[in-house]
């Protein structure tokens, strides 16, 4: 396969970003519509911060809730997909730079990917 130019790499990456954003927006929308199923109920008190339900703050808890079709979990699942989109973009660039045989930039994009994964593994996983 021919080595892709930076411009070609840019275009394929941008297409992937659009896909990720569209998918996550649809999931958030679906969760949002279910969330509004009882439109006349009162909103919780948002003026004082509480960390809230731990099942809405980790990937495993969110996935379990989404499987049960809990509206708030489905919204959070969309948020997880959204957060994963730029991470996937960096992973995509690692592959793209490898195909360009650019060792320096494989190393640089790999560093960024490791920082992102480190942050995610130490928080939501």
């Amino acid at each position: 396969m021919a080595k892709p130019t930076d411009q070609e790499l840019d275009i394929s990456v941008a297409g992937m970003l659009r896909f990720g954003v569209t998918l996550s927006a649809l999931v958030v929308l679906a969760g949002g519509l279910l969330f509004l199923w009882h439109p006349w109920s009162a909103i919780p008190d948002y003026s004082h911060f509480r960390a809230g339900d731990s099942s809405l703050r980790t990937i495993s808890g969110i996935v379990r809730g989404a499987v049960r079709l809990s509206p708030r979990s489905i919204i959070q699942l969309g948020m997880i997909l959204l957060i994963a989109t730029p991470v996937a973009r960096v992973a995509f660039c690692v592959v793209g730079f490898a195909r360009q045989r650019s060792r320096l930039y494989v190393l640089i994009s790999l560093t960024v990917l490791i920082i992102l994964l480190f942050s995610l593994v130490n928080s939501v996983l």
Partner: peptide
């Protein structure tokens, strides 16, 4: 901007800053 934000978004989610009831209408 997206990659930068993704680096702290996991931490925000874990701290409970991303509340579905507010984040949903704002994001959409």
């Amino acid at each position: 901007i997206g990659v930068t934000a993704a680096a702290s978004a996991g931490i925000y989610l874990e701290h409970g800053y991303i509340d579905p009831g507010i984040a949903m209408p704002v994001m959409l």
